[in-house]
Design a protein around this nucleic acid. Structure first.
Lengths: 231, 231
DNA sequence: TCAAAAGTGTTCAGCGTACACCCATGT
DNA sequence: ACATGGGTGTACGCTGAACACTTTTGA
């Protein structure tokens, strides 16, 4: 309970959660931003955030805020870092726990449509952000890059069925670097976490490209068996 | 300023910092704990922690708390994770930002001596800890292990001059696994971040072992050049 | 002379990386 | 027929991992 007197009243702070939301569309990595509807910094672009409720844990707060601003549930969310400079928010002292999220842009378009004030920006042409939100984005992209090297993280960002070319474009967008097609495929397939379907995508080519699906069972086995090294 | 009315009074929380302090001595990885001198959970072992001050950032709070309980300055500190379950502390709602620290146990013995209520425990025989502190320790050791694979992190834990055998024992303690002496030396030396001194340590062997020193300049160059990968 | 720790090289397998051409199809 | 994207294999170098013996010296 708040205000039960056991711990000092004098140093209580508002605690917020801010979400760095990544998406992928049109062969580009995207970031979901909102325009602030209130002071301070009204009308500037910002990560989506909100205060942690008095009886809510941090993960739940992040999920709630994301849901409120996108309508989405069951989103991949991971805590990133906590920002606590005394003057980071000119409106008052706020300690902010940053989370990053990976979502399928298609879902946002389908399910929530409009009525939500969020907008996608290409990751390589972001507007100026309020407070220390650019630092948060910077940390998030680094984390995403590192993570994507050891885990097939991108499946959260693609539609359920996808082609290898789409997957490669995603990795290229994350790392901002061209990759070799043969090596990429060899490596992805050797991870054995995707399954080829008996179905082709003919949207982007005449010949058609095989569709694949992420295999969560194999994935979990892969993650569980991590940590192999002889220093 | 606190209480300026711009943000909701209703959801303000005490924010604490807890420090997971690693040391290395007697060929074992150690953890520095304190006995809680106040309720709740008085007389139980705990990480060292304290509340964030109203005009202090998180890093500074961690350094201050560590200094208060050990007398040490200039300690390696890194933010780890933030814990915010509503009921994690039975004394009231506290959101805690965990930091981990690496310190040279020798320093603590020399400089602060007694008068500080902290005590070293072997990492593999820790007492029961209060609240969610065991989770924090668990997360910290994982981070330390991962970090030590890509960075020569252990130098913060050894005396200024050390032998390769000492360094190897440290890595063995961190990873709880025996390492091959030849491979270890080859790998460490190939990193080129330690310099051999014209001096031998004769404490632990008759023949004497070369002493080495960490070379921070080369180290910084190594870190700067990170992030090499294809895919 | 023996015990105890220090120091040293080679071999092999697997992985990352560079690299170029044919295939299927719709227009 | 041709343009467009889909799909495939090989060769090489580096790195991680396994593995055993000699050296030095004090007791």
């Amino acid at each position: 309970m708040i205000g039960d007197g056991k711990y000092p009243e004098s140093c209580r702070f508002n605690v917020a959660v801010d979400c760095i939301v990544f998406g992928f569309d049109d062969d580009r990595l995207k970031l979901l931003l909102v325009k602030r509807m209130f002071e301070p910094c009204m009308n500037f672009w910002s990560l989506m955030g909100g205060f942690v409720g008095s009886d809510e844990n941090l993960d739940d707060a992040a999920a709630r805020i994301l849901n409120r601003l996108t309508g989405l549930d069951d989103v991949y969310l991971e805590q990133l870092y906590t920002y606590g400079e005394p003057d980071r928010d000119p409106g008052g002292r706020v300690i902010s726990v940053a989370y990053y999220a990976l979502i399928r842009t298609e879902k946002l378009d389908e399910e929530s449509g409009d009525g939500y004030p969020a907008r996608w920006f290409s990751f390589d042409s972001l507007p100026e952000l309020v407070f220390d939100h650019s630092d948060m984005v910077d940390k998030a992209i680094r984390r995403l890059r590192r993570k994507s090297l050891i885990q097939p993280v991108g499946f959260e960002l693609l539609p359920e069925k996808f082609t290898l070319t789409q997957l490669q474009k995603l990795y290229e967008a994350i790392h901002q670097r061209q990759l070799d097609k043969r090596n990429f495929r060899k490596r992805i397939l050797s991870m054995e976490v995707i399954t080829r379907l008996d179905e082709k995508d003919r949207v982007s080519s005449k010949r058609g490209a095989w569709l694949y699906r992420f295999d969560r069972e194999k994935y979990d086995r892969l993650i569980g068996g991590g940590d192999h090294f002889e220093m």
